[in-house]
Each structure stands twice: as C-alpha cells, then as structure tokens.
Design a protein around this nucleic acid. Sequence first.
DNA 1: TTGAAAGCGCTAACAC
DNA 2: GTGTTAGCGCTTTCAA
Lengths: 341, 341
Amino acid sequence: MKRVTINDIAQICGTSKATVSYVINGRVSKVSPEMVRKVEEAIKATGYVPSLSAKSLAGKGSKLIGVIIPQMDVSKKMIFENPFYSEFISGIEYYLRNAGYSIVLRVVNSDNCFADMMMKWNLDGAVVFGIDNDKMLQILGSYKVPTLLIDSYITHKDFYKMNLRDEEASFMATNLLIQDGHEKIALVTGKIDKSVLLSKRLDGYKRALKENNIPFEERFIFQGDVTYEYGFSVSQKIVAQADITAVVATADILAFGIMNYLQLDGKKIPDDFSIIGFDDTYQAKIMYPKLTTVGQNISKRGEMAGEIILNIIHDSQKEKETLMSCEIIKRDTTKVLKSAE
Amino acid sequence: MKRVTINDIAQICGTSKATVSYVINGRVSKVSPEMVRKVEEAIKATGYVPSLSAKSLAGKGSKLIGVIIPQMDVSKKMIFENPFYSEFISGIEYYLRNAGYSIVLRVVNSDNCFADMMMKWNLDGAVVFGIDNDKMLQILGSYKVPTLLIDSYITHKDFYKMNLRDEEASFMATNLLIQDGHEKIALVTGKIDKSVLLSKRLDGYKRALKENNIPFEERFIFQGDVTYEYGFSVSQKIVAQADITAVVATADILAFGIMNYLQLDGKKIPDDFSIIGFDDTYQAKIMYPKLTTVGQNISKRGEMAGEIILNIIHDSQKEKETLMSCEIIKRDTTKVLKSAE
DNA sequence: TTGAAAGCGCTAACAC
DNA sequence: GTGTTAGCGCTTTCAA
C-alpha cells in the first residue's frame, strides 16, 4: 500500500497542499467550512497519516522526546534491573502519550552519543537521567534541544532540572530509625564520591545523627554498587558488626538484597534489624515483610517530567529547578528497638 | 548552533552533496581516497550528524523500531508494573542500540493507533506484544512495516512471531509439583477465554494431571487480572479450600501476591504451600523465599527479538515462527509434600 | 570520479 | 479563501 500523502488528499479534494495542510494543523479559519469538511472526509477515507519525518524536516516538531539513560559502565547492559527507571519512564510515557508524543528510549555509553541522539532524530526534547559529569553537560549544552535533567546535581544555571530533596529525605529516614531507639545505624549506599546525590543523602544521615547527639562513625558507612547483589553481599559485614541494629539503604534495590541475606541468615526483620529503603519502587510493597521506605512517587515524578519537558519545549516553564519532597512510607521493616521499648 | 548539513560538508570540501553522501554511506569505491579523507575530516571537525528525518524522507530507513504494547484497558496507565515488559524491552534496547537503532516506546489503546505509530514516524519495524485480536491484525497487516509479534497466538501465516512453548512449560511446572507429591494443585491465571496463551497453559496443566491420573477439578482454577493484587486477593479463596497444597501461577507477579498473602496469613512457604511462578522476572530471585518458577530468560528473548526484527527488515529471516523453550528454575518455594515424604 | 538536479512529504510566505 | 512555490536535508539517477 503506497503511502497516502498530502498531495493525494489535495488531489482528491481538488485543492492544494497548502489548504490541506491548514486543515490538518487546525488553522481552520483560513479555509472554507465546506473545504474543511471535504478534506477531513478524504483523510478519514484514505487513512492518511502525516509523516513526521517530513514535518520534522520542514522545521516543525518530530513529536519525539528522547529518554536518555547514561550508562558509562559498559558491562551492564540492562537498564531495567533498577525498577526505578521502569516506573519513572512509565510515567513519562503515559503523560507524553496523551500529548501525542512518543518516547525514544536510549542508553548511551559514551559522551558523544548525545549528539547522535539529539540530531539524528531531530528530537523535540530530551529527558536525561543522572548526569553529574561536566563533559556531558558541555556536550548537552551545545545542542539547542530542550532538555530536562533528572536527579542531576549540577550548579549550571542554564539547565532545567528535577531533583529530590535528598538531604531532607535521608534525614527523615535516619531520624525515623533514631526515634525508634536505634543509634547504631548503617548506611548502605552507592559510591558517594561519584555522586552528588548520594553525598546529599550522606549529609542527611549525618545531620540526623548530629541533631540527636549520636556520634558519626565511619565504620557504619558501606559503599558499593547500587544493586541487589551488593546489598546482599555487604550484609555479611553488617551482621559482623554486632552492634548495628538498623540500616538505611539509599535505594530499595539495596534494601532487598539486605533483607534477603538477613532472612536467609535466620535474622528476623524488623525484630533483629530495622531497614528503611529509598524510592518506594513497586516491589517495596510486594516484599515480605513489606519495605518501609522513603517514597518519591516515582511514576508521578515521571508524569511531571513529561509535563515539564513539554513546558520547556513550549517555552512556558518558569522554574529552572523543580524540587520534590519525599515522604516516609512506613510499612513493616522498621520497629521500635527492643531495648528501647 | 545551526545544524551542520551535508551541504556544509560539501562546501568545506569543495565538492558536492552527492560525493559526501557516498562517503557517509560507505560507498567509498566511488570516491577518490583523498576526497574520502577530506570529507571524513570535515565531518569530525564540524561534528556533523546526518538527519534521519531527511534520510527517512528520502526513502531510507529511520533507524527507529517501534515497541508497541497494546493496552485496551484504559484504566491502567503504567506499562511497567509487570516487570516482564521492562526486562524484555531492556533486551531489545540492548540489541538494537548496538545495531544503531533506537526504540520508540508506545502504549496503544485503540485499534487504529498502529497506523499512527507506523506511519507517523516511518518506523523501520515494529515489535508488538500480545495481540490475539483479529481487528488489530488486520490493521497491522495492511501496513507494510516489518513486524514481529511477541506472544501472540494467531494462525495467520503471514506474520512473524515469537512464542513460548506454553503448553509444555505449564506441563513441566505442574508436573514438578506432582512429582513432589502434590495432587490438589491450584492454577492461578489471567482470564483464559481472552488469551490463547493462557488457554495453552491451562492445557499443559490439564495434561500433567491427566498423565499422572489425577482428576481435573474446575474448583482449582482461579482466573482474574494478571496482577499482584489479584494474586493477593484470590489467596483467601485458595486457603479456604483446605485440601490445596500447591499452586501454579501463570505469572510471577501473581505468585508474589499469593506468597505475600500466605506469609501474612502465617503460612509457611514452601512447608504449607508449594508455589511455582512463570517468567522468572528479576524479582523472582530477590523474594524471600526465592521463587521457583518457569524461566523464559526474558532479557535474552528481548535480545533475540531485536535480532529477529532486524532480520525481517533485511529480508533474511527464514522462520516465520520462533518457538522458545522454558526451563524450570528450582528455588525455594516448592518442596516435597510432607504427607508424601 | 564527480556534480547537477529531481524528488521524498510537509510548511509557510506570498501572491492571487 | 486558495494556490504557488521555495525550501527543509538527504539519496540517487544521469550526465559530464
């Protein structure tokens, strides 16, 4: 079936491309009502669908938004092991779908891939996850493509970004445990020096201790990959430090690993250990026991990201930075420390 | 920064667009080595990236593969609650990324959305999930876009598809439980009459019973949504039928719901109930206890889907149907029935 | 080996 | 109101 073009429609209606283009784009005021009707009929009859390649070439939008996940770590190939992305992207997709856009999903693993992405497909905009790296920013900045940065702690004023109040969130998490009577609290996290986000979470952890006059101890900080596996393997070390009674994990996925190890090790959660995670991924509520965590309403954030990127594209986004709060979702992995009861 | 075009490169090198086009597309034999070098240099120097809109308009590929998830149920907006999609798409993305393609992700909720997807973006191909519906097939068929159907049980000979040996897989799952001494085995599944896939799984379940001379009983079949929530809520009914000792769930996500209810209800898994799931999603191994399930190596399947769709596009895919086997992943939610020990 | 030019489907300025 | 036309960036045929 040969493609039906705007020309065909024009021919059928005995008019010109321009007129058809007008009605397609809703500039109905420039066309006689009768012509409008005729064109609309022809479109329906032929099943005509405008080519966005052509539209995009002609300088209008491609109706394509890039969702870009940098993954410098080449060894990891799967983006969705961390359910955070899945849920976030679900939200973006949902919002943009309703606005007539589609998502181009891409993992990029080298600095200059952005150029490719942006230019190749004439993206109308891009949502980019977790960039702290200056090289990348520079590259991103050199393209005029409207961009929204998710969870990127950068100081450049000219980027739009959407972040969490990470310090505060981490403070709340730690504080919850402290209020439950815990004092020896482990922090299990990704590599802090590589991520401003994580260092914020460390700050919040420290502040909670400080405000409660609990001394900070380096030995309670465990850094590794943000994976289930790391959570699992590091748990041995946590158990080895006999005085630890609670742990803050900076991602649910870490918490799952910890939980699983402890349970396999015969420990009771939350009786022997209180655990609080971070993110409130979908899985948090399907675990047993259900994970207490710092909720960030991921899919809602995704939807909002969709909204913001569209605003940026339409030049109607005011705030450069959108800061979102978290809330503690108290479920079944934390409880008052026995000795403090 | 204005876009660098093929014209700019031509100008810089003092040649024509055609020549530049040749070297871009590797038809180096038609160009003098010296010119090739010059052009390549200019490309590097300017950071030129070909526009796929233009390329696609000119009749070449868009390097865009649609990944389409039909979701007629409008109320559900999130595609990634079922981790199956996440993992599968991860695999597709990984494979296609390495081949220079990107993925356009789209949930479609009405029949004619396909047209939009395919035509709007001049997709080079499409991977479409779970279509049994004839109307849709008809629409899909009328477009010449190379298409791969995932888990669609259809008889049309002219579609490429990639399926599981569902009957066999379900047989194996049920049989495992039977070999462990179980006879009263529940089957928790989606609505069977709406899905040929699920009816195959029912068939496998029945065959396993039959070959072991166990009578089939309608009261052991539980149909609902393929969600955690349904798994959770239906468990009450399962517990109510005091003789049931094991359950086959046709999706891991269902199994999770069941596990969680049972554990909350004070039941021991696998001591009181043996459970086997389906899919081997990532979560299966992070649960406690780890879920025994029928593995289909989802992300591998995704990669293969990427390979196949590319083959179809390049006209080198021979088999219309790719059938994949499953294997039992024995973990910790099944065990020999006590009374049978 | 290289270049000129037509055409892919669409938009928008401009003329009628 | 409507039609004409010149691009948008690229490929490809055909000549040179």
